[in-house]
Amino acid sequence: MIRPHDDVTTSSSGILGRIKRRQLLRLGFLGGTLLALGEMSALIYPFMKPNKIVGLGAKVPVGSTASLMAQFQSTQDVPILNTLGRFFLLHPEGGIIAAYRKCTHLGCTVPYVAAENRFHCPCHGSLYNKKTAVVEGGPAPKPLQLFHIAEQNGTLIVDTNPLNVIDRQKNEWDPSVLEIKA
């Protein structure tokens, strides 16, 4: 078997002088493999992260303030459901809020029950106010969370990102959360 002479070095100084051929090949192969794995991870992670959000998480247009207020007036403030965006539009005194439909107890989807004139969670019986979504009974620890609403060219846009909500800790109506006044 022919082996390269250990004492043959092309240059005597620097890193090249100290690394032997086989070490270089081994390092190159190992480095190449690690690089390929790193590139694959760098591809797969952003690939798996969705850019297009449908439903919860999207920015949902819900019409103008005037048309919503007219609807509230004609129905005596029955909450307006947006199923895909998973929220209710409510009419507290002085404005419009968008309540995230997720029970603050254990996360069930809360329906509005017309016969009771309030929200009634079917899982464990949490009750929320029709106009402000503060707790009226049951195990829920705090009011329904609120989505941010912005007005753009006369249309209200509800930002349904559940990681960016108005999280009311106190169980009472506080008008300072109003973003749309009417």
């Binding site: 798996m48 449908v54 919860l56 559940p162």
Partner: peptide, 13 residues
């Protein structure tokens, strides 16, 4: 959770 499940809640993704 967002990357694994492909959204803010369970859906088509």
């Amino acid at each position: 959770a967002f990357v694994l499940f492909g959204g803010f809640q369970l859906g088509a993704n």
